[in-house]
Every structure is written in C-alpha cells, then in structure tokens.
Simulated scan of single mutants.
Amino acid sequence: MVAVFAPPFGEKNIELPEELVLFTVPLRDIVVFPHISMPLLIGRPFSIEAVRRAWESNRLIFLPVQYDKEKEEVGEEDISKIGTVARIIRIATVEDNRLKILVEGLARAEAEKYFFDDVVTAKVKILKEEVPELTPEDKALIQEIKELLEKAVSLGKRIIPDMLYLIKSEEDPVKFADFVASVLDLKTHDALKLLETRDLRERLKLAYQFLYKEVSLLELQQRIREQARKTMEKEQREYFLRHQLKAIQEELGVGKNPEVEEYREKLSKLNLPAEVKKQIEKEMERLERLHPDSAEAGVLRTWLDWVLELPWNKKTRDRYNLKRAKEILDRDHYDLEKIKERITEFLAVRKLTKGKTKGPILLFVGPPGVGK
C-alpha cells in the first residue's frame, strides 16, 4: 500500500488532500504537534522501514501515539486515532542501524483505519482547523498565556529565545496554541489530550491550565532553592564568624574559657544518653559566648553544676529488711509513730511484690526541722 499524495520537496505551504494513506510510525513518550519541527530517533524495524519508504515516496508520514511505551509489537487498539501528519526533512543512520530524522508537523489527522503488514500504514482524514473570531476573553487568555510563559522563563524554564519570540509574535491562534503546547513540560497522555482537543478555545484553556500548574511548580522549586541558599549562607556565616572569633581570642591571648573546659572535662567522664549530652554541649557553647558577669551566665552555671552532679546511670540495690528499717527510724526520729508505721507498710508491700509494682510515692509534708 502506498501513499497517494506527493508534495514538491521544499515547498513551505502544502495543501493536503482531505484523505490520504500514509506510512505510520507510532511514537513512544513523545507527541509531535503541527507547525513544529522536531528530531526523532527511530529504532524498531517496522518503523525504520516505514520511514525509508516514506522518504523514497512523498516524504509524508503519520505520527500517532502508542499508549503503552513498553510494547514492541502493536495493534490497532494500542495506537491513538488522532495523530500528526508530518513531513520528513532530514534522515540519517546512527549507531545500531537506527535512524535519526527531522520532521515538521503539518496538520492534525484522524486515522480511519490502520493496516499492519511488515510496516504500519493508515488511512487518515485531515482535521480542518476552524478559526473562530476572537472575543475579548480569547485575547485576554492569549495574553495571559504569554505573560505566564515569560514568568516561567524567569523562574528557570528553558525555552529557546527564538521560540519564545515566535510564540509572543504569532498572531494565528491555531499556530499559537500548538507552539505553546510544544514547549510545555507534559506527560505523554497530557500532550496527547492537547493534540486531540479540536476546539481551539478549549485547547487554549487546556494549555493555560497546564502552563499554570508548571509555573506553580517552578515557584515552589524556587522557594525551596531560596530557603536552602539562605540556610547555607547562614551556616557559612556562622562558621566564618566562629573562626574569626577564635583567631581574635588567640591574638588577644584570651584562649579557651577555663570554666567551660572544666565542665567539658566532667562531661567526658560521664556516660550520658546522646540527647542529654547534646543539650549539655549546647548550653556550654552558650556559656562560652556570654559575658562572665551576665545574669544568664549565672543561670547556666547553676544548671550545668546541677546536671553534671546528677548520678547518671548509677543505681542502688533496694533493701527490704523491715526490722533494720524500724530500728533506724526509731533511732533517728522521736515519736512520729503513724509516719513510721506508714513507711514500714510501704517497704513491706515492695518486699512482697519484689519491687515490681508501680505503687504510690510517699510525700512528706511539714515545716523545716520536723524530721522529714
């Protein structure tokens, strides 16, 4: 089966017949839009053969989208009905006998029937573009898309300057919509959705929605980068200032704070949990930066003295000798019989349960000097 139409090579404005039969290359992970030139790498044998035959005949080819990119062999249900009729501009053989071609999209088309032999061919119908008279709302939408594109570029989106200029200066709304679609960072199914949308207004709205999402993502990425940059700058500044302070102290002969060094020596001898040790070291660094006579420095010294004197990881063995306990209570405390009895009861319960119960905690209340 051969194509039925052969345009003169090099002609810019090609009048395509309403129906024609073309060699077909199902594309994986890419969509070619009308009015856009794009390089393609062709690797499957049946696609390579289709390109060669198209090149030798009329240089026109039909480019639909393959739904499942992992499939090597395809059937009619695996290929989109809507695709792009394109002209092959250049063809070259690269490594592994694959072909690298440059194509120019000409028009949207719908496959009425696919034919599968040693190559894929399709009977296609050209989809005529109806250009409505632009309303003020349409013009406002086009202007908004142009401004969003400029914003995307300012946020780091890569668009060739010539392409950006072409989009901004294009007055044909059909070409404008396809130009915009070609520069969007879209997944294959989203790009295909744009290609399949025949109504121009709906296509412009859809392109705006995709572009708006992309700009929102770029803004978020920029905020993340800015936060990371500020964090790095702060850390670098603190690192520089600490080293500068150290150099100044050494120059003045101040050296290290002996009080803090004494605390560090005590800390090194203790077997503390990691979180506790980290907090103590943090407070030591604060003390080192404070003026020795400041009120906050006094509070920190008190806290460090207290926390470093605590019996970390030290335990005593409980003794439940009730007779011995009563002797000690009678020897050291006169009267207070009810309190002594309560203490003895508490120890008795602990002895019976071998210290495993979560019993009450004794609280001694009274003024100073009464024997608490």
Rank of each mutant, 00 (worst) to 15 (best):
Y320V: 13
P132A: 09
L300V: 11
S216I: 06
A152C: 10
P161A: 08
I89T: 05
I88N: 03
K128N: 01
L362K: 00
L192K: 04
V124H: 06
R28D: 14
S47E: 02
A107D: 03
L22D: 02
L304K: 12
E110I: 05
E265M: 04
T135I: 10
I167M: 09
L220Q: 10
V153K: 12
K157G: 09
D190V: 00
T135L: 11
T302R: 11
K12W: 01
E77W: 00
G10Q: 10
Y208M: 07
E259K: 08
V119H: 01
L352R: 10
L204G: 04
R342K: 14
R229E: 15
Y208E: 13
R59F: 09
D118L: 01
N271S: 10
E214T: 10
L352T: 08
I79C: 02
Q249R: 15
F115I: 05
L63F: 03
D330C: 09
D138Y: 09
A152W: 06
A177Q: 05
K123A: 14
K277D: 06
D78C: 05
E262A: 13
R59N: 04
K12M: 14
E250S: 10
Q221Y: 08
L336E: 05
R331H: 07
K282D: 12
Y239L: 14
L134N: 06
A181Y: 09
R203P: 04
T357R: 02
E130F: 10
P258F: 04
E15Q: 13
Q222R: 15
K193R: 14
I79T: 02
V370T: 14
W312E: 05
T121R: 12
L164M: 09
V124D: 06
P8G: 08
L218G: 09
M1S: 10
N313I: 05
L127N: 01
L164Q: 13
T197F: 09
P258I: 11
E150A: 11
V153R: 11
V74G: 00
N313Y: 06
E104K: 12
F9S: 13
V21L: 14
V4Q: 12
P26T: 02
I82Y: 00
E226S: 12
V365A: 12
W306R: 15
P273S: 10
K100T: 06
S47L: 02
I14F: 08
I82T: 13
I159V: 15
N321P: 03
F33V: 05
F240L: 15
R289Q: 08
R301S: 00
E15V: 13
R229G: 05
T316C: 01
K128G: 04
V2P: 04
S154P: 02
V31R: 03
I91V: 13
